[in-house]
Simulated assay, not measured.
Amino acid sequence: MKQPIGTTAKTGEKCPESGVWQVTTAPTTTAPIAKTNVMPPYQNKAVTWRLKSYA
């Protein structure tokens, strides 16, 4: 079962769903991240990522 669009995950957690993820704070970016990969930092900082669309 897919996680809903808008699901969040923090740097260091395992990605719960493959798709395009967006950083929730400014400055923001998007990145394709595969399920079970570790959520990355952004600009050397721990951030919260939000699922924007499915892969």
Score class of each variant (00 low, 15 high):
residue 55 A to D: 11
residue 46 A to M: 14
residue 25 T to N: 10
residue 19 G to W: 05
residue 43 Q to D: 04
residue 6 G to A: 06
residue 18 S to A: 01
residue 1 M to D: 05
residue 26 A to P: 06
residue 52 K to L: 12
residue 24 T to G: 03
residue 50 R to Y: 13
residue 5 I to N: 08
residue 50 R to A: 06
residue 8 T to P: 02
residue 17 E to F: 13
residue 40 P to I: 11
residue 54 Y to G: 07
residue 18 S to G: 07
residue 22 Q to S: 10
residue 7 T to A: 03
residue 27 P to F: 13
residue 44 N to H: 11
residue 45 K to Y: 15
residue 48 T to N: 04
residue 5 I to T: 07
residue 25 T to F: 14
residue 42 Y to G: 00
residue 3 Q to C: 03
residue 32 P to A: 07
residue 21 W to R: 01
residue 20 V to C: 03
residue 42 Y to N: 07
residue 36 T to E: 01
residue 30 T to P: 01
residue 55 A to V: 15
residue 29 T to H: 08
residue 46 A to H: 14
residue 30 T to W: 13
residue 14 K to H: 11
residue 51 L to E: 00
residue 52 K to W: 13
residue 5 I to H: 04
residue 26 A to F: 10
residue 9 A to E: 00
residue 3 Q to M: 12
residue 12 G to A: 12
residue 1 M to K: 04
residue 4 P to C: 12
residue 7 T to W: 01
residue 39 M to Q: 01
residue 6 G to Y: 09
residue 10 K to Y: 10
residue 43 Q to R: 13
residue 41 P to E: 08
residue 1 M to T: 14
residue 15 C to S: 01
residue 30 T to R: 07
residue 30 T to H: 04
residue 33 I to Q: 02
residue 27 P to G: 05
residue 11 T to R: 07
residue 5 I to K: 06
residue 3 Q to K: 06
residue 48 T to I: 15
residue 12 G to I: 09
residue 6 G to L: 07
residue 12 G to Q: 01
residue 54 Y to A: 06
residue 42 Y to R: 09
residue 10 K to N: 01
residue 37 N to W: 14
residue 50 R to V: 12
residue 36 T to Y: 09
residue 22 Q to V: 15
residue 42 Y to H: 13
residue 26 A to W: 10
residue 15 C to H: 05
residue 18 S to C: 04
residue 3 Q to L: 09
residue 4 P to K: 05
residue 41 P to W: 11
residue 27 P to E: 00
residue 49 W to M: 07
residue 17 E to I: 14
residue 1 M to E: 07
residue 6 G to D: 01
residue 21 W to M: 00
residue 28 T to C: 11
residue 48 T to D: 05
residue 29 T to L: 04
residue 21 W to Q: 02
residue 44 N to D: 01
residue 50 R to N: 04
residue 7 T to S: 02
residue 46 A to D: 08
residue 6 G to W: 10
residue 30 T to A: 02
residue 26 A to H: 03
residue 7 T to Q: 07
residue 52 K to R: 09
residue 24 T to Y: 08
residue 23 V to Q: 01
residue 6 G to T: 10
residue 18 S to K: 01
residue 10 K to V: 09
residue 25 T to L: 15
residue 27 P to I: 11
residue 12 G to E: 04
residue 39 M to G: 00
residue 51 L to G: 00
residue 55 A to P: 02
residue 52 K to S: 08
residue 18 S to N: 02
residue 51 L to Y: 07
residue 7 T to K: 02
residue 30 T to Q: 11
residue 5 I to D: 01
residue 51 L to D: 00
residue 7 T to D: 02
residue 23 V to A: 04
residue 9 A to S: 11
residue 1 M to I: 13
residue 6 G to F: 10
residue 53 S to M: 07
residue 51 L to V: 09
residue 43 Q to K: 09
residue 4 P to G: 10
residue 1 M to H: 15
residue 35 K to A: 06
residue 19 G to F: 05
residue 34 A to L: 13
residue 30 T to K: 02
residue 9 A to L: 05
residue 22 Q to F: 15
residue 16 P to C: 10
